[in-house]
Amino acid sequence: MTPFKMHRAKNLGEAAGLFKAAEEGRFLAGGQTLIPVLKQRLASPSDLVALSGVAGLAGIKVEPSRITVGAMTRHADVAASADVRRLIPALAELAGGIGDPHVRNRGTMGGSVANNDPAADYPAAVLGLGATVVTDRRRISADDYFQGLFTTALADGEIVTGLEFPVPERAGYVKMPHPASRYCLVAVMVAKGQTGVRVAVTGAGQAGVFRVPSMEAALAKSFSADAIVGLKVPSDNMMTDIHAGADYRAHLIGVLARRAVAKALA
């Protein structure tokens, strides 16, 4: 790793200030993406601003119709939360399927959502459940937040503070994990509730997570796995790599979406 100066902020204002004062700053959350990136020298920031000591960023708040997850909440804590398991079981299950136990003990929801890896799990939850990304400056709807490969609506130095999830009537998440890394080869979140019917796909798109309007329309008429049989997603904008081709990924979307609907109904 190239040398950097390490700072541990105690509150949001301090974190934003340290970032601003740095030549090239980076926030550090769980480090499960950033530390490997630094080791590979894909980034060489002059300063890291750790968010682990910022008061009030970790934790899960429950209201009757929504759950707010603090940005520094670890994947393991989302997976284990009795409230999340009761109100949005698909979200708890998704969190429990990220990487491995050690990654889940460090990795955070805010870090994953800020990073917006095209094969990450949380983007499917945020877009599929119609969540709101809350930052130290504003509130951003999921539909406006994700803007392509590793790209989001976040401005330089903007800090994700939490994610607000409307509690759905029902939701289901199904993932085809890459057998070694556990990242998503393809995964689909299907939800029905306050924000209508939403189908979000991660792992497949060249531009990251996306919705499938044709499936959403069919499911809005009839929320059943049969309603989307035969609905094809074009393979034009799908990723191709040594693990899976674009056609296979497009095919998996249909299969996994039907399974996700069945799970939501179970």
């Binding site: 390490m6 499960q32 530390i35 490997p36 682990s52 460090r106």
Partner: peptide, 27 residues
């Protein structure tokens, strides 16, 4: 591996398993 994959470096921090090659000492 030193690339966060193998878990040979697993230790406990406050009772939770973590990959020590993927956490800064200052933390």
């Amino acid at each position: 591996c030193d690339t966060s994959q193998c878990g040979a470096c697993t230790v406990h921090v406050d009772g939770r398993s973590v990959k020590s090659c993927t956490m800064l000492a200052v933390e």
